[in-house]
Amino acid sequence: MRLKELESLMQDIAPFEEPKVELEQYPTGPHIAARMLYTVGNSFDEFDGQTVIDLGCGTAMLSIGAAMLGAQHVLGVDLDDDALRIAQQNVDEYEEALPIDFLRCDVRQVALQGRLKADTVVMNPPFGTRRKGADMEFLRAAFQLSRNSVYSLHKSSTREFIQRLAERELRATSAEVLAQLRYDLPASYKFHKQKSKDIEVDLWRFEVPPQTDS
């Protein structure tokens, strides 16, 4: 699938009805989602025939994209019931049954789900601006849930910190910024004074350390 087609596919996916501030439910822009999916699917070929976990899946934009690019099973994980309801509706829009399941779970509670794993984890985590460290919790969880690689978006201002966390604490085999993207954050919430604000985010790819099968 071409980047343009992917982007228009992403445009059709319903966003959050009422974004929740505390969960930093910014909708992933179609452009960013498409770029991310294209990179995973085309540059690295890590969707086709694989299992995927979309951590903090929201309304399932990345989950649906992964399935469209050949993932054989996608598990969308989110804490929020309202988001999951829309996510399921978005999946049901398609005539054929997409290979996507959803799970309501807290990212801070997945540590004891030792069998829960996928070949690839994709995520657009909260930036940790409302609850400090939320982005790090997602990254830690993603490393546990992945067998091979993790793709994630983080604010460019946290680049050095993420690099250290991935390499020193999480023992990543590799940690690489693939692209810097402009995240057009629409004024979703009342406390956003400007109409919209561009922030710079990094698209990361991490390879998780080799693990023994449970």
Binding site: P99, L103, Q109, L112, R115
Partner: peptide, 21 residues
């Protein structure tokens, strides 16, 4: 929920030893 998903889940309550399947 497909059974592929079920196959990966366990009870993750603190202190539970035999939470699977």
């Amino acid at each position: 929920m497909r059974l592929l998903c079920h196959n990966m889940l366990q009870c993750h309550i603190k202190g539970v030893v035999n939470g699977y399947p």
